[in-house]
């Protein structure tokens, strides 16, 4: 087989044309990309404010407590320690969740592949919108909830996110695995809108 014959053979493999809806999909996401940049900045600001608030509360509690100075200092350090651990854990879980979301996982509802379902989120929270049904908020950390957290509804191992949404079983499966296979509990609220 000479070069020309090889070229002719290779030319037999045709690529399909770009699907027409892709253009609309990409262009429709233009503002979303812009918002994402603002969200990153907003998240940084929120974290900074949260840390400042924690330090402020610690300082006030220490000043107002009737205990001794050493006792106050110990409590303060303990609280700071716990907050820092939670903060690091939130960051880590948020990182895993972000990588999982960006891997374009496949969504199965009661075992059926649903290409019409939308999946997104930010930080340690994700959401799933099922057409005609609504949006389910899925939290990978209890710290997401200000009040009491809803009961545990599933688990996430970095590869599969599985949970109960009402009477349905939702399985969101990625081609990759993120994190160290730690099994995280999943808390679900919703549907919150339609």
């Amino acid at each position: 087989m000479n070069d020309q014959e090889l070229d002719e053979a290779l030319n037999r493999w045709k690529a399909p044309a770009t699907p027409t809806p892709l253009r609309a999909r990409v262009l429709a996401d233009y503002p979303r990309g812009e918002r994402r940049g603002r969200r990153d900045l907003g998240r940084l600001l929120r974290w900074s404010l949260a840390m400042a608030a924690v330090l402020g509360v610690l300082a006030i509690a220490s000043a107002q407590s009737g205990g001794g100075a050493l006792e106050n200092l110990g409590e303060g350090i303990n609280r700071l320690h716990m907050n820092t651990i939670n903060w690091i854990h939130d960051l880590w879980v948020g990182h895993i969740a972000s990588a999982f979301r960006n891997s374009h996982p496949r969504i199965y509802v009661d075992g059926e592949l649903r290409s019409d379902a939308e999946f997104g989120g930010s930080g340690v929270g994700v959401w799933l919108r099922l057409p005609g049904e609504g949006k389910y908020l899925v939290a990978l950390r209890r710290t997401v909830f200000e009040g009491p957290a809803p009961p545990r509804a599933g688990r996430f191992d970095g590869h599969v996110l599985e949970f109960k949404a009402g009477e349905r079983t939702v399985r969101i499966e990625s081609t990759g695995t993120f994190g160290f296979h730690e099994r995280l509990p999943v808390y679900v609220m919703g549907p919150v809108d339609r």
Partner: peptide
């Protein structure tokens, strides 16, 4: 292709 164009928008 979609992801690449989204990447172009990220800060």
């Amino acid at each position: 292709v979609h992801e690449c164009f989204m990447g172009l928008l990220r800060p």
